[in-house]
Design a protein around this nucleic acid. Structure first.
Lengths: 242, 242
DNA sequence: TAGCACCTATAGCAACGCTATATGAAGTGC
DNA sequence: GCACTTCATATAGCGTTGCTATAGGTGCTA
């Protein structure tokens, strides 16, 4: 149909799959649709991508580049937590702009099998949270914070996708976003518990130091010392109460 | 196989589908599997349930009864926000106990088509949040709070399901849960200064941790460990590198 | 007994993901 | 220039999927 041009079949398959995925209104996309649109036959698909999932993975990888590009463009504002907010909003916007692609990336859940793209997104957020941790702005270890925020981010995006476009209320996103960021940040005023603030200064400092040490591979400690040091820091920063 | 008994075919189909769904390790469940296990042929299924999705909806309805029963059993503790916590935990536990059924209920996302079960779960949570609102414990309208909490709840549960069982860290759930509940509750102290954020460096963090550790005699480390730990902190905090 | 819903089985369709096999094109060594 | 390998694509078809057109059996009411 559209890709009779001189592009190599592999590229045509990728484009055809991406376009069909973007335009398929919720319905599944078949390999026959893809190959027909790409102007090739079935074995070509399996020669280049192994199977259908392989093709989709490749499409997702391209989509993920776009996603990451959106994340990185806004990156350095100097205020890591503000950057996390923008990462969150960018995540939601990506999901709403390309719901089908997003569902392939984040919605294709199967038990005990984690898509690589989720781990990548998690790493991206953890990276940013590390900066916040170094600045002493984090209440919990960056990895746990990233997992928690990303889980909420995906949940909100999926819920927004299921809503019809005109009814979408993005306040759901901003509210949940700020709730999560506030929860992991150390700037909260903890007036509930009297002993809570005393403990939190230890934890915040330990988390900050831990992040800082891992970021700038320090040479003040020998490697064996560093290893033990980090183990202790982990024990402190993951302890629930003192 | 197992349902040659005298139960009506409709019931046998429901049970067969439920059992196959519960035991299928992530893979899809075919109508032929279901009908064979139920001891009937294909048209029987379509006579009673219309199509495959109709059968699954019926299974989900039964599963949802179980889910709701779990939610309601714990309901009246007098503290609505505490009940919300239990609803959250019950939701997560339900998802981890019956991941396949949960995925059919909450993971089968398609754009602009919201499963009825999601609306029901939302209503259930909103109902409970209404009590909190009446008691003046809510910061936002119950409906928005319910949507926000449920979105995060689903996101966390989906993320936990994708993890292999032995590695599951339920702290992700409790942390996100408390963050969301705290965010919608009116008990938060909203007075936190815009700055008060320190500098970012290993040295500052080490100094902060050092002071904090000495202030609150931590018992996470033995005294000999603490001595060495403090010595290292001193080495770090007196060095000039960033 | 006749008629009438209701329920189930036989048999098979179109579409699915995927592949065994064969054919063409492009390079490589002699 | 020619055999040889390698890569890339096509022909044809396998087994399975969700689903159905048609017909037959069953039990109830008249």
């Amino acid at each position: 149909m559209s890709f009779d041009g001189q592009l190599p079949p592999k590229t045509r398959l990728l484009r055809a799959a991406a376009e069909l995925l973007a335009n398929s209104a919720g319905g599944a996309v078949s390999t026959r649709q893809i190959t027909q649109r790409a102007g090739v036959t079935a074995p070509t698909l399996y020669h280049h991508f192994g199977d259908k999932e392989g093709l989709f993975d490749a499409v997702v990888a391209a989509g993920f580049e776009e996603y990451v590009a959106g994340e990185r463009d806004f990156a350095p504002s100097g205020q890591p937590l503000e950057d996390i907010r923008r990462m969150w909003d960018n995540h939601v916007q990506f999901g709403l702009n390309q719901p089908e692609l997003y569902l392939v990336m984040f919605g294709n859940i199967r038990p005990e099998s984690r898509p690589a793209v989720v781990a990548d997104a998690e790493g991206l957020m953890e990276e940013m949270l590390n900066k916040a941790a170094v600045a002493g702005q984090l209440n919990v270890p960056p990895r746990e914070a990233a997992r928690s925020i990303l889980a909420a981010n995906v949940g909100v995006t999926l819920m927004l996708i299921t809503e019809k476009a005109p009814e979408r209320n993005l306040e759901l996103s901003t509210m949940t976003r700020d709730a999560m960021i506030f929860a992991v940040s150390s700037e909260q005023a903890k007036e509930n518990g009297p002993e809570a603030s005393g403990k939190s200064s230890v934890v915040v400092a330990a988390i900050a130091l831990n992040a800082a040490l891992q970021a700038s591979h320090s040479d003040q400690l020998s490697s064996s010392e560093l290893k033990l040091f980090l183990e202790w820091l982990h024990r402190i920063s993951t302890s629930s109460t003192s």
